[in-house]
Write a protein that binds this DNA or RNA. Structure first.
Length: 620
RNA sequence: GCUAGCGUAGCUCAAUUGGUAGAGCUUCCGCCUUGUAAGCGGAGGGUUAAGGGUUCAAGUCCCUUCGCUAGCUCCA
């Protein structure tokens, strides 16, 4: 939640944040991906937050002038801007936005001061009823009896609102805001309630900041993994096969292979064992696991095999549990760590699908740790270590959130306490700061979720480490302890990439598809200037290929054109070969993102590629 | 799933008030022999997402289905 700072106006408005709820929202680029834009800490003398909130009032005023019969709902500030929800006589189109903006400038010219006033509930209700503002009346009803009711007025506009706002309309720059898009939004975020029309806008202290933000948005669009995926032939989705099912094309397949190989290396070194489990299972498995009961909506419909219902797996855990349960375990066996790149299928509503980021079939980098309660903390330390190693390799910074016991949960308080202690203890040993998310845990156990920040400052849902009390109970897991008593093992569920689809989709945007050498599908191109250098070029390409670097040998067409083509294909290294180079046994190296060229020997070129690859360097 | 919008060649886009589809790039074939982000010429390519309807006539209007986009709800 963005920090709220008081700015001007009066202090009456201490009620619930009528309009300032929704930390999620707008800034979300690419829906449903759990990304949200960072809140810009750069604030002027008056809070940007207040500026945006006030701009949303100005917009509501303008909309009511254009549509006098409109009803208003809520209009909070959000990351980078604001929105306001309306019930309108007709659907809005893109063409309406400039018209509303124009009207806003007129409102701005006459708005004057933002005045806050405290009203009695009766007065407030009268005022809203008179205005026919039913949604606001509903909000009024929800304000607790012991809290004050405030209105914010400017010009002829009056709105039930907690504030805070700017002091006068003069503080809102006429060239610092822009309406960006419209969308549907349920009243109170409830899919059973009316669908309202939401208008999103962005607002800044000046034109320069606005332009900077718009340029940033443009960059976001340029990096959209769907756009790059098409342009660079990375992946596709074929409606004949089904929405939300991803085809990894050769170049992206190569990226994934490298990730997988590295992932397995790390896991083997950490004592995980690879396991493989079936993609379908008799329905009773998911009945017993509780998935059918708790996640019925996301499990694909059953298929009939010999008169018995089978399901495509939505999770890998029951499979790993089955392996664990296939024999008796001594405490000496523990911890047991099973790892699988497990493909799962989940039904996601059609409207939520989004490129590789939100799909219906995906592969998790899944692993389950079965251990004794006493081993839990050590195991968690190791997981946190691996999380850090993996995320920092890509240059992601991250924040960790500890989700504690929710109201509805299973397992004794004692068990929860032990697990939380282990999570906290592990974090402390790693010097990992934990943001608390009280009550945010899943019903079956506490967890640490990571949010990672990408090159554009956007937040993505990252790794997760969850302690699970549910499955060991449901599948009656046990091990024989040193005192010859059968005991319940603790089960830890963890994924670091999350899913390859989402993670790699994110990587495409994070790197703008300029993958580091160790992942880059085609790290180098060799370009002979004329046919006379073709033979030498082919030999260099062969040397690079033997060293493990896929290399493009491009001989057709003018050099300038080939360079352009390689640049557009995002090949970071281009070795140009002319008469001079062949004579001296060098290449003229053109490196993406660097000006000019450097001459170096073929050996040095290979050495440089090796160094970048083996160190998993982020720079070329 | 919901609200709104969209679906024209492999890609990016055109097609006056309904009058039977056009460009650039890509691809292919020639020519050009290239010094650091587009050399020149020619050719090929579309049952306008699919199906149905209105009309003398539908890319354009209506309906259904599929898919996509912005959000909402939900999620790895």
């Amino acid at each position: 939640m963005p920090r709220r700072r008081w700015v001007g106006g009066c202090m009456d408005g201490r009620g619930p944040m009528l309009e300032s709820r929704t930390p999620r929202g707008p800034g979300t680029v690419g829906r449903g991906t759990a990304m949200s834009l960072p809140f810009d800490p750069q604030e002027g003398p008056v809070s940007l937050h207040a500026l945006r909130h006030s701009t949303s009032h100005i917009m509501a005023d303008a909309v009511l002038r254009l549509f006098p019969e409109a009803k208003v709902a809520i209009g909070p500030p959000v990351d980078h801007g604001f929105y306001y929800d309306f019930e309108l006589p007709r659907p809005l189109t893109e063409e309406d936005l400039p018209v509303i903006e124009e009207e806003m400038r007129k409102v701005l010219a006459e708005a004057g001061e933002f005045i806050c006033s405290s009203l009695s509930r009766a007065e407030a209700a009268d005022r809203l009823r008179e205005a026919g503002q039913d949604y606001k009346l509903e909000l009024l009803d929800d304000i607790p009896e012991d809290e004050g009711v405030t209105f914010y007025d400017h010009g002829t506009w009056s709105d039930l609102c907690e504030g805070p706002h700017v002091e006068t309309a003069d503080q809102i720059p006429a060239n610092g805001f822009k309406l960006t898009h419209t969308a549907g939004a349920y009243w109170r975020g409830d899919s059973d309630k009316t669908m309202l029309q939401r208008i999103y806008g962005t607002a800044w202290w000046n034109r320069k900041d606005l332009r900077k933000y718009l340029a940033w948005l443009e960059e976001v669009q340029k990096r959209d993994h769907r756009k790059l995926g098409r342009e660079l032939d990375l992946f596709s989705i074929d409606p004949d096969f089904g929405a939300g099912l991803v085809f990894w094309h050769p170049k992206l397949g190569q990226v994934r292979r490298k990730l997988e190989a590295w992932w397995w290396d790390l896991h083997e070194a950490a004592g995980y064992w690879p396991v493989y489990t079936p993609h379908v299972a008799g329905e009773q498995v998911f009945e017993r696991s509780g998935h059918l009961e708790n996640y019925a909506d996301m499990i694909w419909a059953p298929m009939d095999v010999d008169g018995r219902p089978y399901r495509v797996k939505p999770m890998n855990c029951p499979g790993h549990v089955s392996i664990f349960n296939s024999r008796r375990h001594s405490y000496r066996d523990l911890p047991l760590k099973y790892a699988e790149l497990g493909s799962v299928y989940r039904y996601e509503p059609s409207g939520t699908l989004h490129g590789m980021l939100r799909v219906r079939g995906f592969t998790q980098d899944d692993a389950h740790i079965f251990c004794t309660p006493g081993q839990l903390e050590d195991e968690l330390v190791e997981v946190l270590e691996m999380v850090d190693q993996i995320l920092s390799t890509f240059g992601y910074s991250y924040t960790a959130y500890l989700a504690t016991q929710p109201e509805k949960s299973m397992g004794s308080d004692e068990v929860w306490e032990h697990a939380l202690e282990a999570l906290r203890g592990a974090a402390a040993r790693r010097d990992l700061a934990l943001e608390e998310d009280p009550g945010g845990g899943v019903f079956y156990g506490p967890k640490i979720d990571f949010k990672m920040r990408d090159a554009l400052g956007r937040e993505w849902q990252g790794p997760t480490v969850q302690v699970d009390f549910n499955l060991p109970e449901r599948f009656d897991l046990h091990f024989n302890d040193a005192d010859n008593q059968l005991k319940r093992p603790v089960m830890v569920h963890r994924a670091i990439f999350g899913s390859f689809e989402r993670f790699v989709g994110g990587l495409i945007e994070h790197f703008a598809a300029w993958f580091p050498i160790w992942l880059c599908p085609i790290p180098a191109a060799v370009l002979p200037i004329t046919a006379d250098q073709e033979e030498a070029a082919a030999s260099i390409a062969r040397i690079l290929g033997e060293a493990g670097f896929r290399t493009a040998l491009r001989t057709e067409g003018p050099l300038r054109r080939r360079i352009r083509e390689c640049e557009m294909e995002k090949i970071p290294y281009m070795a140009v070969l002319g008469e001079r180079e062949v004579e001296s046994g060098t290449v003229s190296l053109r490196v993406h993102g660097k000006d000019g060229q450097e001459a170096l020997s073929v050996e040095d070129f290979v050495a440089r590629l090796r160094e970048r690859r083996d160190s998993r360097a982020l720079e070329y």
